[in-house]
Design a protein around this nucleic acid. Sequence first.
DNA 1: CCCCAGGTTCTGG
DNA 2: CCAGAACATGGG
Length: 276
Amino acid sequence: MHRIFLPLPNGDFDPAQTFDCGQAFRFSPLPDGTWTGVAGSRRAVIERRADGIAVTCFCRDGDCEGAWTDYFDCARDYSALRQRLSAHPVLRRAAAYAPGLRLLRQDGWEALCTFILSQNNNIARIRGLVDRLCRLCGTPLGDDMSAFPSASSLAPLCEADLAPVRMGFRAKYVLDAARRVASGDIDLGALHRLPLEEARETLRRIHGVGPKVADCALLYGFGRVECYPRDVWIKRADSLFPGGFPPEFADVAGLAQQYLFHYCRTCPGAFSPDMR
DNA sequence: CCCCAGGTTCTGG
DNA sequence: CCAGAACATGGG
């Protein structure tokens, strides 16, 4: 067990806002206010501190501090970014609504797979699907939790094997993704170096991966913060940007998208007339 | 019972 | 090229 402290001088981290904003589906709150869950193959308990993030990690790695530093995107100055986005009145409100929200830099395969499961689905049910998939196919990590199953562990399975997960029509999509990744047909490791459009085209070769799922995988799993996935909520948010999404924020559109998604989905009156 | 959900594919014009 | 339907499932 490792105890790690990740300093965030501005204190801009809130586990509820970060884990419950629809980007990750494997962390849950405990009665004492901490959060428990799994990222990739690392199980951990996450605790908010005034000046940072306390991680109690149960992995076997000699040194996982770097992995958690990366996972919580600690190199990015979220206070400065919120201030920058606040030049736009809508983005100012959305960012102020969840100032402790951070983009998690998740494992690429896990992000791809979970967002394949997300299509035409609601967040509560996505959580259930991911949980049953990990329980069925992932390596147990203790405390009734399991690692996210690798592509190579899913590739040999058939739809009937996955029936207990109840993915519906998404099962064949997950299997196509697993087989292409496990066979090397699609090299997720090489995706990081591809230009954005080529990375999108590569992911869309998978049956069941369209523009939205590809952008979610790239944003959450491959650090492409310029991606702006357009789901039903973001399309509703179009009405808040009469001239389109402000181009001066294109380089961090993905972060703006996450603030907007969470704000539009959970804040009553987000679309009230006095929004401008 | 009906509507909807962090969409994509399929089908018929 | 484009609008609608189909797709599985279950939460609200």
